[in-house]
């Protein structure tokens, strides 16, 4: 891993700085058309976005410099598969919740997170997650009368 610690350029950190500068540009560009349309507004709706944009630009530039000098703390090597399992779990949940339903979506999120933390018994995990989700669903929807997103599975009970 390209750790810094004062030895040469730290490319990921330079990228972060560039990202901050990009966000500064987006904030500035998106707020350009705002105006105080009525009344006597000395400081209009643009004031804060412009200030924030300026701060992001400043800190972004300083981060680029810090990356160049390599003054950020070093990072340990990461286990990217585990991160991918959690990210994937959430993404699958977003895709499934309105079709397959709330309970299976939650069950898959539970199982994939458990997988990220080293569990190897996928079926058991799906079962536990599903049970937990079903209990939660019944509590919220039947007892409190709230509406949760639901799909095919929930139409069964």
């Amino acid at each position: 891993m390209s750790g810094g610690g004062g030895t040469g350029a730290d490319r990921p950190v330079i990228a972060i700085g560039a990202g901050l500068i990009a966000v500064a540009a987006i904030v500035f560009w998106q707020s350009w058309a705002l105006r105080a349309s009525f009344g006597s507004q000395t400081l209009g709706p643009q004031m804060m976005p412009f200030l924030v944009s300026l701060l992001l630009l400043l800190f972004g530039s300083l981060t680029v410099v810090a990356g160049w000098k390599g003054t950020f703390p070093t990072r340990e090597e990461a286990d990217w598969t585990s991160v991918a399992w959690i990210t994937g779990g959430l993404a699958v949940m977003i895709l499934l919740i309105k079709t397959a339903g709330f309970v299976p979506a939650c069950a898959l999120l539970f199982a994939s997170t458990a997988r990220a933390f080293g569990s190897r018994r996928a079926l058991v995990d799906v079962g536990i997650g599903g049970l937990m989700a079903a209990v939660v669903y019944l509590f919220f929807v039947r007892l409190l009368g709230l509406s949760l997103p639901s799909g095919f599975t929930e139409s069964l009970f």
Partner: peptide
């Protein structure tokens, strides 16, 4: 609770 289930539970709980 074993870590895989603890974190699985936290994530489900948080999203719900």
């Amino acid at each position: 609770i074993p870590r895989p289930w603890l974190y699985g539970g936290i994530l489900v709980f948080a999203t719900v």
